[in-house]
Amino acid sequence: MQGIRSLSILGAGLMAGALVLAGPAQAEYPDPNREVRHIMPWGAGGGTDTVMRGFVEHLQKHLGTSIYTDNVTGGVGSVGWMTLKGAPPDGYTIGTVTYDILTVEHQNMAPVSWEDFEIIGMVTEHATALVVRAEDFETLDDFIAAAQDNPGGLTVSNASTGGVWHQHAVAMEQEIGLELNHVPYESAAPQVTSLLGGETMAAVISLPPVMEYVRSGEMRVLAVMADERVEMVADVPTFTELGHDVVYGSFRFIAAPPETPMEIVEVLEQAMYDTFQDPEFLAWAEQGGIGERWLDREASIAYMETIGPVIGQLMVDLGLTD
């Protein structure tokens, strides 16, 4: 299937090329006869793939040409980002950039940085949260007291050592002045079962995977690492409210290869903006609880310029850099 698709893309590309050669007039971007390739550095069916595949599905309507998702996985996302970095800057290749690019950059896994890309705009942002079994702790202060009684004994799960939630857990630990036992899992899902099964006492995680258990009363969110309260759990305080300066989250952007012309970037940005005005997309996002958040190109770059060095310093503190 993929083979046939690539062939037809190749065919379309050749035809488009022939047209450009034949006529002097440069085709307007986007050419509705050319497909846009969306590079997805994470596996098919995972959380990021599902959300971003769904997003570009809505985006293509506003861009005026079809977009297909191409999973280019491996190397903690770096294979996909290296591919995006080397792709032709003609607007017919875009890609998803996630929080992990900061990890890749600061660990020197591959010669790629978010600054290499032309950021188009933000799609989602999730505040990180501290989640426990409801029967164990009532408030963040209970948790802190328990951790102080038993230094290094309280188990807190994350989704990989050095990964996003480990970073945020250590940031929280350092800010409050605790000593925790960080337990790495493969992804968010086993974090949830280990909490349910009692293997770990707490999870540093994003909200969607635990919402079901929060609603049923089995789990409790002690605090969120956001600058203001999160709508999904409006009764849960932020760390800042409780007097701890811990504000972290993870994000997903759409970006274009380096040196993509500004006219094209603007067209893409406008299409993303239009998608965020589309009630159909908003209803879909609401239903899936994807944590949608629109930031335009300028705001996205500012966001990255703020968070980038903070995470870099955090990883140095963690001893996770080379």
Binding site: G45, D49, G54, E212, S216, Q287, G288
Partner: peptide, 16 residues
């Protein structure tokens, strides 16, 4: 992958 599709459909797996 099927789980991903369920979530997009707005079906949240869980005891409920």
């Amino acid at each position: 992958v099927i789980l991903g599709a369920l979530v997009i459909q707005g079906i949240v797996p869980g005891p409920q």
